[in-house]
Amino acid sequence: MLADFWGAEFVLLTLPPLVIATLAALTCALPGNFLILRRQAMLGDAMSHVVLPGIVAAYLLTGSAATPVMLAGAMAAAALSALMIEGIRRLAGTDAGVAMGITFTTLFAAGVLLLEQSGASSVHLDVEHALYGNLEGVIWFDATGWASLLDPVALAGLPPEVGGLALVLAIVAAAMWLVWRPLVISTFDEGFARTAGIPVTLLSAGLVGLTALAAVAAFSAVGSILTIAMLICPPATARLMTDSLPAQVRLSLVFAASSAILGTLVAGYLPPLIGLPGTVSASGMIAVVSGGSLALAALFGRHRRPRSA
């Protein structure tokens, strides 16, 4: 049993979703740290929902389901939603949360309608994939066993999501490292940051852009449920464990990766072990695991602050 578990089949079938889920989780958790501190958690929610109409519209306009086209469509939708949020906030004078709630539910619903009415669902786009992603469907066909990890030919046949997500993770991490100090300062005290010569508006837009990039990259692989969970749960859990921002970011990455790994393994192996038929959605299980960690941290975290009011 255990030999089977770690055997060639594992490398072929389990390792790709495991790696992809981990990369997606890390990519989302990084900007998520600043979203929760800026009380913009809803923004991540909004971004991961508007990706759907963007992808569908891009497909309908170009007739292509190639990754760059999908990415461009999703980024355009993310930009449009950012404008809509700001527009609603200014014109209607609503709270930012209200504006986000209106924007992302409307656009997501429009995306579902568009999907149903068009021929897009006959390709690999459908509502289920939009929610759960397609982690289990990712298979490393060129793998023959653990040795394939060192085999250039087999590595060239890695599922394209791995390379794409790794690239986006590198971009997000590099950008955050570069603007770390001004981002921290403007997150804590925007007025002061402006007078200290920090381009506050540009940084805010940049954070939205990074969030959109992370959400778009994660969305196609793991779906919107997991994207939202990974943007918020690991950073929120980490926040409850420490009062140091660098430690919070490091911990959020640990929680993101461990939720992804644990969730994938539990989803794939636990149901057969306890005699249930089939497996459950890896994305769903990862989101549940990360929500469970958050619940534990809320109960036992060192730096939780129960509100008395």
């Binding site: 007025g191 200290a196 602050r305």
Partner: peptide, 19 residues
């Protein structure tokens, strides 16, 4: 004007003045 729950120490805030 700021959220004092922000994860920072007194020293970190003063260091912001040196940006």
């Amino acid at each position: 004007a700021v959220d004092w729950d922000f994860p920072a120490r007194a020293l970190d805030v003063v260091l912001m003045g040196m940006y």
